[in-house]
């Protein structure tokens, strides 16, 4: 490449991008640039490999117990009963709860950080929220088990039963561990995801949008709700869907506070199970080919669902074209 004098000197910016039109590049170029490309291929292969391996390993489960297990709630592996419905129910209820709680708070916090607070204050607060995202899930779990669950049992669940006990959702015994506790813990865990991504999206809304609204005499709140939020809607939905993906797949924190009982109950106080938590709780103790196969099948299903949720979310977030901050979850 370096020998190709004219090309290099006259259009240097193109030298890297137009390999096909150039004379064969040097050996060093071919090796090192080839390595970079190989690394990119490897990343691609890892994701495709995950997909293929998990799909293939789910197959024995589908073959041996069939798809009918999705209709049954009876989970008793020692006698060959593999009803999965209660796990699906538990997963849906806890992650919906998490979104209902974290969504409004997260969007509110994002509005403050992006629009309301002075930058001097927004930066450190955003930093704190990033740190909340960095807390390992097992730490949320131990906190949930020893601090949140007792408070739920002695204070929050009795209070809910007193005030909203006419709803079937808030009836029954106060266990402390259960779907409500898991939902609240998940809400705390996904709160930073909602906040950080919504904030990026809000900051990408063009200034004109705000100025036009203010020029019409709107208050700041009216400006936010009528000019900024509608513009950012698809991105914020994307942020919520990403949070949903994280809540669906969270295993460790949930397994410590949900009570691990394969049952469907209308009461949010009741112990339950989720797809991720049954995997975390039972996989290493599973005996017998079929039991292991079914658990792997649950894991594969979880992977597929979270892939779909994530792809949808990324497409929504990407459509807004907001620049992203460094993020690890």
């Amino acid at each position: 490449m370096a020998q190709d004098g004219t090309d290099v000197v006259t259009v240097p910016a193109l030298t890297l991008r137009s390999r096909r039109r150039r004379a064969p590049s040097g050996l060093g170029d071919r090796i090192v640039l080839g390595l970079f490309a190989a690394a990119a291929w490897l990343v691609l292969l890892v994701v495709v490999g995950l997909f293929v391996v998990l799909l293939i390993s789910a197959w024995p489960a589908v073959q041996s117990v069939g798809i009918r297990v999705l209709e049954s709630t009876a989970w008793d592996p020692t006698s060959g009963k593999y009803g999965l419905l209660s796990f699906i129910y538990g997963t849906l209820v806890t992650s919906t709860l998490a979104l209902l709680l974290a969504g409004p708070v997260g969007i509110g916090a994002a509005l403050l950080l992006a629009e309301v607070a002075p930058r001097r204050l927004a930066t450190p607060v955003a930093m704190l929220i990033e740190l909340l995202a960095a807390v390992p899930s097992v730490v949320f779990g131990i906190w949930g088990l020893f601090v949140l669950a007792p408070v739920m049992r002695t204070v929050i669940e009795p209070a809910l039963a007193r005030s909203l006990g006419f709803l079937p959702l808030f009836q029954g015994y106060f266990y402390g561990v259960g779907m409500l506790t898991a939902g609240i813990l998940l809400a705390i865990m996904v709160l930073p995801t909602v906040t950080a991504i919504s904030r990026d999206i809000l900051e990408a809304v063009p200034r004109d949008q705000r100025e036009a609204m203010l020029a019409l005499g709107a208050t700041r709140w009216e400006m936010l709700t009528r000019a900024v939020l509608p513009y950012a809607r698809s991105g914020i939905v994307g942020a919520l869907v990403l949070a949903l993906g994280r809540a669906l797949g969270e295993a460790m924190a949930v397994v410590m506070v949900i009570g691990n009982k394969p049952a469907i109950s209308l009461s949010l106080f009741a112990p339950a199970y989720t797809m991720a938590s049954v995997l975390a709780n039972e996989f290493t103790e599973a005996t017998g080919k079929q039991y292991v196969a079914v658990l792997i099948g649950i894991g594969s299903a979880l992977f597929l669902i979270s892939m779909l949720v994530n792809i949808g979310a990324r497409l929504l977030v990407r459509r807004v074209g907001a620049p992203q901050r460094m993020r690890t979850r």
């Binding site: 990343v43 995950l50 998990l54 995997l279 894991g299 994530n310 792809i311 993020r327 690890t328």
Partner: peptide, 17 residues
């Protein structure tokens, strides 16, 4: 795109892999 998606894959599924 896939590395963005990979960030959201549940870590327990990666353990299973």
């Amino acid at each position: 795109f896939l590395s963005d998606v990979l960030t959201g894959v549940p870590s327990i599924a990666i353990g299973l892999f």
